[in-house]
């Protein structure tokens, strides 16, 4: 019994030591990997994309070693709260609803959402035009919040990833989808498959659902990390690293005003 207690205590000690060391040394960052051009996975398993490169630029700025942790979108906030990683850099919009659970750095980009449907479709991106239509959105995104608020008469169809939304739009199972305009343009409309589809209607902005841009999520108690990340974002804006990354993916500056 005594030996057992000793082993358990020793084990616990080692455990606490390793976790503190880990928490101090490496910054673990949660990324999604299914949200082109912001983050996607190459055939060889490496993670690529705007979010991923911003993450490494920020780590360089903070002079910290970083580890990317892949996490499905559904479980992103729970995993952050469960200490699976320390920050989320995965195109997560800063909204009031999310702020109840987690905290955000300053924004690192802000792009509008738009509706996509087939060229021949009469859908015009308005609530009236979408009434009774099947509208695809990725579950747990700001678009789910917005679609329920702005298109109450549309039939909402929820998907785990944005890639599945585009796939079912191609297969004709949904009439339209709403997502980030850059994502829709880059990973769908620009491809051969997407040629028969186009943006419908204008930009959708909504403070309640879409918030004030996309930020880096951290746990509420990590205010120090939050402030350092906010400062690092401004720093890479100034030293040109942001522009360099921005220009490899986009033709316009996506930081917004």
């Amino acid at each position: 019994m005594n030996l057992f207690l000793k082993t358990v205590t020793a084990g616990l000690l080692v455990l606490t030591m390793t976790t503190t060391v880990q928490a101090e040394d490496t910054l673990r960052i949660g990324v999604e990997g299914a949200y082109k051009p912001f983050s996607w996975k190459e055939a060889d398993g490496t993670l690529k994309g705007f979010d991923v490169e911003i993450a490494s630029a920020l780590c360089a700025e903070l002079k910290r070693k970083c580890e990317l942790v892949e996490q499905g979108w559904d479980g992103m906030i729970p995993a952050l709260l469960a200490n699976k990683f320390d920050a989320i850099i995965a195109s997560m919009s800063i909204t009031e609803e999310r702020k109840k659970r987690i905290d955000f750095s300053a924004k690192y980009y802000q792009t509008p959402a738009r509706v996509v449907a087939a060229n021949s479709s009469a859908i015009d991106g308005t609530a009236k035009g979408l009434a009774g239509k099947r509208l695809g959105v990725q579950r747990g995104t700001t678009h789910q919040c917005y679609a329920e608020k702005a298109f109450p008469d549309a039939e909402l169809v929820l998907y785990a990833t944005q890639e599945e939304v585009f796939q079912d739009l191609l297969l004709g199972r949904i009439n339209a989808q709403i997502s980030d305009s850059l994502v829709a343009n880059d990973s769908f409309l620009k491809t051969d498959d997407g040629a028969k589809y186009s943006f419908k209607g204008s930009d959708h902005l909504d403070l309640e659902c879409y918030g004030e841009g996309v930020g880096i999520a951290v746990r509420k108690e990590d205010t120090d990390l939050r402030d350092k990340l906010s400062a690092a974002i401004l720093a890479i804006r100034e030293n040109g690293n942001y522009a360099k990354i921005n220009n490899t993916y986009f033709t316009v500056d996506i930081y917004g005003k």
């Binding site: 906030i77 609803e97 109840k100 659970r101 747990g140 919040c145 929820l158 998907y159």
Partner: peptide
């Protein structure tokens, strides 16, 4: 629920997604 149907788990996932809940 993984192919968009709103079965019991599908509704659970909808609720988690809509209000950014975990459990």
């Amino acid at each position: 629920s993984t192919i968009t149907l709103q079965d019991v788990l599908g509704v659970g996932r909808w609720l988690n997604g809509r209000y950014y809940l975990a459990y």
